[in-house]
Nucleic acid binder design. Structure first.
Length: 585
RNA sequence: GGGGUCGUAGCUUAGCCCGGUUUAAAGCGCCACACUGUCACUGUGGAGAUCGCGGGUCCAAAUCCCGUCGGCCCCGCCA
């Protein structure tokens, strides 16, 4: 006989208006409250909880996490028994029948608990972890958010186009996951770090507005906000310049935040800082604008100081910069030492402090600075009693890194970060190039197809290192959320860039031949951007890492604790791929 | 590749500094019994841990030392 195990309602929907209906509910047993003469069971599915009332004879074997199908007639709870905490708290279902569809072992951790569980265990039993409220909420929000993004672009005439996952390796930037070819001995596909070149080819093809919710892969070490596979909202548009890309993405991010980050403050309008401004003011290209505490420059003020550390800095082309920590005078000696030590890890000589007190300025370096210098510094700092000025001297990069991190550390110590605010900004005009620390050669900051600012075209020949790019990042609360650029569509300009990067004609042909050839056939001006959607969702869910918003994430060593990947394969299978594996005992 | 941190019943932790009243403790969960209105039900009873693993010091090690494995965080790396 066919069982009537088909549910008619979810566990989250029954209301007072459903009283009297015969219903069938299916779900997992969340809790069992056994009173001897009657038994309450909270039945759970992803929609919610419904209280089932059972005669003891029907509840005998029903235990937590069993899958049960219950039929009965919805009734109002007796007066005084309404549970206001439950969406279905006004009603209950007395069970005419309760069929166990599936039994369950006692789970390794409690599903019904907010309490933190060892993450290793959670990942090993991810399917159970995903039953818990926290993960259900995050995964459901993720779906809704991605759906919203698709609808947003669909309304604006964008096409979502799938690009291949097995592609040609073009060694550049991050390490690629490689896939050996069975049909072509010794050859490999790689998994995309991003569909960068493919989406540019889609522009050549005339699909002038493209987006894709797409998996990307990077074989690099993990972080709390980095997984080996992650998802991007990939966007590319033709006949656009920087402003067009920023404006449509700004519209999207604001709509998303308003819809999904309910009750949070959003700082609008969204400021646009050039890279230079961001570095000067915050020492970082991803500043957290929930914090003030801007950096100021005192290089010239102390250029003539008797304090050599300061005066020599100017001579050697460096900078002396500082932040004013409001209320920083309460820092202990140890806290100041820690800040100093941290600055040293970024290559700074140290972090000097001036503590502003009623009686005057207390500082180990005060005696080296004359009154005029001190008063000018406190004036430019806007420092008052109880503040602490932190000063760093060194080259541009060192000073920026040291002060940027000091700024964040001080804000955290003094609890200055408003958790209920989303502070957005665009960072634009990134440098085109940087000097590679190891090879000392010129590298692209973004990628070699990034267009320079129109006004910097001349610099490419004279001083390429000073050229700025049509590249931009969307930053929220100090996290890089999206990054993109306008691309080069002019082959002469592209050759110039390759020359600067030391990429020979031959090299370029080998690696990017497909793109360069395509660009011989009428490439439109185009540009785009890619969002790290995991990070964005993590921020909206107020989670500390992206694993909390990914159904089946890898651990920090890129292992899948649930399935055991990566794993050995049978020798025969490996052999077929024409690769040799060294297996040292 | 480097630095930090954590590892004690099924889970979450205490104990570790300062070795010995520890038969390794508690809450949750689990098992059994009782209970007709609970909703984190309650009450009574019970089972459950060679303290990540290996070695060392000591009369004595969860506790001190060395090594090792694993998780997490950070640096490097991530065009």
């Amino acid at each position: 006989m066919h069982k009537t195990a088909y549910r008619m309602h979810t566990c989250g929907e029954l209301q007072k208006s459903d009283v009297g209906k015969n219903v069938i509910l299916c779900g997992w047993v969340m809790r069992r409250r056994d009173h001897g003469g009657l038994v309450f069971v909270d039945l759970r599915d992803r929609y919610g909880l419904t209280q089932i009332v059972l005669d003891p004879s029907k509840a005998e074997n029903i235990k937590p996490e069993y899958v049960v199908c219950v039929s009965g007639k919805v009734r109002v709870r007796p007066s005084g028994m309404i549970n206001a905490k439950l969406a279905t708290g006004e009603i209950e279902v007395p069970a005419d029948s309760a069929e166990i569809l599936s039994e369950s072992k006692t789970p390794p951790f409690e599903i019904d608990s907010e309490k933190e569980v060892n993450e290793e265990l959670r990942l090993e039993y991810r399917y159970l972890d995903l039953r818990r409220e926290r993960m259900q909420k995050n995964i459901i929000l993720r779906h809704k958010l991605v759906k919203f993004v698709r609808d947003f672009f669909d309304k604006k005439d964008f096409l979502e186009i799938e690009t291949p996952v097995l592609i040609k390796g073009t060694p550049e930037g991050s390490r690629e996951y490689i896939v050996p070819s069975r049909l072509y001995p010794g050859k490999f596909y790689v998994l995309p770090q991003s569909p960068q070149q493919l989406k540019q080819l889609l522009m050549v093809a005339g699909f002038d507005k493209y987006f894709q919710i797409v998996k990307c892969f990077r074989d690099e070490d993990q972080r709390g906000d980095r997984q080996p596979e992650f998802t991007q909202i990939d966007i590319e548009m033709s006949f656009v310049d920087v402003a067009d890309i920023l404006s449509i993405n700004e519209e999207l991010v604001l709509e998303l935040l308003r819809k999904f980050a309910i009750g949070k403050k959003i700082t609008t309008p969204v400021p646009r800082l050039t890279w230079q401004e961001a570095m000067d003011k915050y020492g970082s290209d991803k500043p957290d604008l929930r914090i003030g505490m801007e950096i100021f420059d005192i290089t010239d003020i102390v250029a003539g100081s008797s304090f050599k550390v300061f005066s020599e800095t100017k001579k050697s082309g460096g900078f002396v910069r500082a932040i004013n920590v409001v209320g920083g005078s309460k820092f202990s000696r140890k806290e100041l030492d820690d800040l100093d030590a941290m600055a040293k890890t970024f290559g700074a000589g140290g972090l000097m402090h001036l503590i502003i007190e009623k009686e005057g300025i207390k500082s180990p370096v005060a005696k080296y600075l004359n009154e005029k210098e001190l008063s000018e510094i406190t004036k430019i700092a806007g420092a008052k009693n109880g503040d602490c000025i932190l000063i760093c001297a060194g080259n541009f990069k060192t000073v920026c890194e040291a002060l940027s991190n000091a700024r964040l550390a001080c804000a955290a110590k003094l609890n200055l970060i408003d958790k209920n605010t989303f502070a957005l900004c665009w960072i634009t005009d990134f440098p085109m190039f940087e000097i590679n620390k190891e090879t000392k050669k010129i590298d692209s900051c973004h990628h070699p197809f990034t267009a320079p600012l129109d006004e910097d075209a001349d610099l490419l020949k004279k001083e390429p290192i000073k050229a700025r790019a049509k590249a931009y990042d969307l930053v929220i609360n100090g996290l890089e959320i999206a990054s993109g650029s306008i691309r080069i569509h002019d082959s002469k300009l592209q050759s110039t860039i390759f020359d600067i990067l030391g990429i020979t004609h031959e090299d370029a042909k080998n690696r990017f031949g497909h793109l360069l050839r395509a660009f011989e056939y009428g490439p439109p001006p185009h540009g785009g951007i890619a969002w790290g959607i995991d990070r964005f969702i993590m921020m909206i869910c107020d989670e500390p890492n992206i694993r909390e918003v990914i159904a089946f994430p890898k651990d920090q060593k890129a292992k899948d604790l649930m399935t055991g990947a990566p794993s050995n394969l049978p020798d025969s299978q490996v052999k077929e791929m024409h690769i040799m594996v060294s297996r040292f005992a």
